[in-house]
Amino acid sequence: MKKIILITGASAGMGKEMARHLAQDGHTVYGAARRVEKMADLKQSGVKILAMDVTDEASMIAGIETIVKAEGHIDVLINNAGFGSYGAIEDVPIADARYQMEVNVFGAAHLTQLVLPHMRQQGSGQIINISSIGGKFAAALGGWYHASKFALEALSDSLRNEVKQFGIDVVVIEPGGVKSEWSSIAMDNLLKISGDTAYGNLAKQFSAIAKKANEKNADPIIIVDLVRKAIAAKQPKTRYHGGYMAGPALFMRKILPDRTFDKMLLAQLK
Rank of each mutant, 00 (worst) to 15 (best):
T238C: 09
E215C: 09
K234P: 05
G247Y: 09
K270V: 12
A88R: 05
A198V: 10
T112Y: 01
S85L: 14
F166R: 07
L42N: 11
A10M: 05
D262T: 11
I193K: 06
K43S: 15
A154K: 03
A230Y: 01
G15E: 02
E90D: 15
S158V: 15
F83E: 08
R259C: 10
N129Q: 15
M1V: 14
E174T: 04
K149V: 14
G125N: 06
D157Q: 12
E90M: 11
S156F: 13
K149E: 13
M60F: 07
A208F: 07
R35Y: 03
V224D: 02
K3L: 06
G200D: 09
L155E: 06
L265P: 04
S132N: 11
L191M: 14
A62F: 04
R35P: 06
V227D: 02
K2M: 13
Q44K: 13
L50P: 06
M14T: 05
M39T: 07
A230I: 01
G125C: 04
L250D: 12
N79H: 02
A33W: 10
Q205S: 15
I74Q: 08
H110C: 07
Y99V: 07
E37K: 15
F261N: 05
L77D: 04
V36I: 15
S156W: 13
A233L: 10
E17A: 15
V68S: 07
R160G: 01
K3W: 05
R253K: 15
R228E: 03
Q113T: 01
G177S: 08
M60P: 08
Q24Y: 01
I133H: 11
G134V: 07
N129A: 15
E153K: 12
W182E: 00
E71C: 02
D169H: 02
L256I: 13
